[in-house]
Write a protein that binds this DNA or RNA. Structure first.
Lengths: 351, 351
DNA sequence: CTATTTTATGGAAGCCCTTCCACAATTTGT
DNA sequence: ACAAATTGTGGAAGGGCTTCCATAAAATAG
């Protein structure tokens, strides 16, 4: 029925081992037989059956990518980098999107047991020590992107620096009263961005006004907490609250994610205020959407991060996991100045 | 080393066949042994090894989804539907993104031969008769989304109707001079949308003005042709050209994709014109971005389309392919009125 | 209570590869 | 020229599962 390695071997008048060696271009094979076998392979349109290879090799040539899906664009750009790096190396991508917390556990567990993949890329999620240990023990390499664990390869962004720069930018533009809209503080990036923001104010001798800082409460309704509070609705609601402030309303806001900024902008427009004249905004992430919104933001090199994560994984897959050597890479976010901060305008690039 | 079915069998004091039957909950098994086996499975944390299952069953419980990646948002929403439907059914998703034409062929070929997947979902791509025949012959079910082939299950949108309605909407708002910005005419949707647009004008006794119709030439530079001409840059360039018209410049434009509309809007802003006062716009697709742009558009139910495609595939996978019965489903796009057309405003929904 | 049907169970064969060992053929050294 | 080292090749074993056939046990019938 389907063409197997036996058919090829018979047709070419060689042993199956030889065919296998040709397929995997093992060195010890004479050019003559190689050609002969290759010809038959082409003629029979033979293609090795991945499942069987997987079983025999105990490799799948596949990596899993686990992302919290519904947050959208951020992952989209990351996936692009991942996808390209993978296909360059002949790996396939199995995509898992996680909406609920339990599902995350579920998927981690499955990845661990089923061994359907050779490596796992986890984006924007905390991995419990428990699972970290399990993965290490299983020897399945894991790379965290936009997430950190002491014992796992982690690719992160300098959140403190980013928040600091974003806030500083607003300060330089002359703003004194700068608020912050943030995610849930149980998310590490949110916490650190808050610190960066505070530090910038402190370094400029500005007293903090806690009532201008809007975090998402850990016990908020699910729609607000979704994705650690980095979602449109939460931004919208937070900005509504901020706009309702009777006195000392900020003239500028650092919003710790672009998607929240999108919600916030909507709220501002509904309120009838002008951006950036009456309220200036700087976001965080640099997703494509920010371009359309004219949003000044701290851009994360997501494509690069995805690319790097894949390289790390493939390296470990091919050269074996060495748990002593944990890879940590810190990327620096970059300020992209657009309209919402009130500084000079920059053309969106069309490339 | 790893726990196999043999370990479970031994530990439970049964045969491997019995264990297998428990795993696949085959009917002919006594409750007593089932419980016994299940207990051991839990105790040993046994999880079947997918590769081996795949080899034995000749099923992979995986479907491939092939999308042209770089166009972005459209597929993002589609994938959401796909992903949810799949995970509900215990299937995994292998994602292939295609940038170049050759790569498409490549991936189709691989899917066909490697048999890594049980079914293939192809989005927004034409499948040659050649490959259609190959897939049919291979018995690997294929579903086309936003694409059509006589012999393959196809889920499409009523492009003619959509374009007609979009254009009619502008006509109803009083516009007489309505232009169109379109993709490459060798893409079927582009061709049909053009027809719909023309029909609407004809039905309203408006003479066509070919100079107000901007298709992407098949020999245009690659950046413009990308994704059949449905890209930002092409929209930007087309609008620039339209704005340069000396006389009889349209007061409204139907743009056959939201992403192109995004580019066009940029061009209009640069030109210093006001939307919708000086130029009204209706797009097509209803990607999330349209919401941010305040773009009036014809919304495609992408989530639903993805969901349906998966259902079709899984059905065929589980009940066998019946090539006599080809499934065709036509969805209707829906007009979403926002700011860019100049009709009454509608709140973006925050849910 | 025995004969027949039904239901439950064990395990060999098979799915398609890779890998390793043994052996054959060739090359190198002397 | 022959021994030793090197290179090339065949095919068995093994990877972990499903499935089918044979057999054992239980249920039903007479």
């Amino acid at each position: 029925m389907r063409v197997t390695i036996y058919d090829v071997a018979k047709q070419a008048g060689v042993g199956i081992g030889t065919v296998s060696r040709v397929i995997n271009n093992s060195p010890h094979i004479s050019p003559k037989t190689r050609d002969k076998v290759l010809k038959v392979i082409k003629q029979l349109k033979y293609q090795p059956y991945v499942m069987a290879q997987g079983l025999a090799r105990k490799k799948t040539n596949t990596i899993a990518c686990i992302v919290p899906y519904f947050t959208g664009y951020f992952y989209f750009e990351l996936l692009n980098g991942v996808q390209q790096a993978l296909s360059r190396n002949g790996y396939d991508l199995i995509l898992y999107s996680v909406d609920l917390f339990e599902k995350k556990e579920d998927i981690l567990k499955r990845t661990l047991r089923e061994r359907r993949v050779d490596g796992v890329l986890v984006s924007s999620m905390t991995i419990s020590d428990n699972y970290a240990a399990k993965f290490i023990h299983s020897k399945i390499p894991v790379a965290l992107v936009d997430g950190f664990h002491q014992l796992l390869d982690s690719i992160t962004i300098e959140n403190h620096e980013g928040a600091y720069l974003a806030t500083s930018h607003l300060l330089k533009l002359g703003h004194i009263k700068i608020g912050m809209i943030n995610g849930c503080l149980n998310s590490v990036p949110a916490k650190i961005r808050l610190q960066g923001y505070k530090q910038a104010l402190i370094d400029n001798n500005i007293t903090l006004d806690e009532q201008c800082i809007f975090n998402v409460e850990p016990n908020a309704e699910p729609a607000l907490r979704n994705n650690d509070g980095f979602n449109k609705l939460a931004g919208y609601i937070a900005m509504k609250k901020m706009l309702a402030l009777r006195k000392n309303r900020p003239t500028a806001v650092f919003i710790s994610s672009d998607i929240k900024a999108a919600g916030a902008i909507k709220a501002i427009q509904e309120h009838g205020l002008k951006i950036p004249d009456q309220i200036a905004i700087v976001g965080f992430d640099g997703i494509e959407l920010s371009e359309y919104l004219g949003l000044t933001t701290m851009k994360q090199p997501m494509f690069k991060m995805g690319d790097l994560a894949v390289k790390i994984l493939i390296n470990k897959i091919q050269n074996g996991v060495n748990n002593e050597k944990v890879f940590k890479q810190l990327f620096h976010p970059q300020l992209v100045v657009r309209e919402t901060c009130g500084a000079s305008l920059v053309q969106a690039d069309y490339r």
